[in-house]
Amino acid sequence: MAKPKIAFYWCASCGGCEEAIIDLHEDILKVAELIDIVFWPCAMDFKTEDVKNMQDNEITVCFINGAIRTSEQEEMSKLLRKKSQLIVSFGACSQLGGIPGLANFWDRESIFASSYGGKCPSVDNPDGVVPQEVSEVPEGELYLPRFHNTVKTTDQVIDVDYYLPGCSPAPYLTMQAITTILSGDLPTKGTVLAPNKALCEVCSRNDSKPEKLSIDKINRVSLVEVDPEKCFLAQGIICMGPVTRSGCNGENDGRCIAANMPCRGCYGHPSEVHDVGAKMVAALASVVGLEDEEDMSEADVQKLLDQIVDPAGTFYRFSLAKSYFRRKIMTDSKEEK
């Protein structure tokens, strides 16, 4: 019997998710024995034509990482959807938009102006050349993919079967996902293949949280000495752990927590959370100044909240593209179809 065929593809991503596959180490050999990798542009030389020539549904499962930033990524995702029985949205950028999704606070024009218009100190572009979709050269026309105004998640472009969260997904979860899929005992469509409880569940610092958590000052890791054993929120440091799935480090403390850094939220939200940022804002608003609530004026509260630097980037660091808002408001004429 033919081995199941697996594909990996990357869209708008940093390459960390590719690394996460390599991080399977020897386990990748076990996987390789059981499967045929039929497409993995980062590691092996395949061409788009190879995929086009496949039968529909020929690929058993395709792992797509990265967000959808360009027309090429959109086309490739659609092509892979057609050729694959299952699509796994792999990593935070694919699932939630990730760091590239933060570009939704701008649009194509302002990004180009910033990157090519002389504002970027590392770019030497005296003529102000901006990438064109079609360029005339002596040999003929050259094409570049279209740069969309809005970064999208994979499931905003194609139908997705499962999600592997994280920036990047933990190798053990990837291995579990592959094994589960190969076993044929498939979970419900749409399942996120990671624990559904928030990170506090496994956090060794959770017990250090006071019974009545009340934040009277917002601190930043760069400006205070962080107690390595105390809950970050109890230290006034914004930690996205309570609104973020656990699983990045198995049953142990989260990977960032173990490095004495607060959770940034890359594992995305538990199933019942509709909007990560809104949930975290509501949670924080519930405990900021809680102890002295009755004695605080509106101005006191505002002063406390003003201490939060870059709230949008903090609360929606990985999830802006998947949030209720999705992006900064644009006039209709600018938004592509």
Partner: peptide, 12 residues
């Protein structure tokens, strides 16, 4: 099945 025991709610 969802509660992580973060207990943020308790004091509120």
């Amino acid at each position: 099945d969802l509660c992580s025991g973060c207990a943020i709610c308790v004091g509120t």
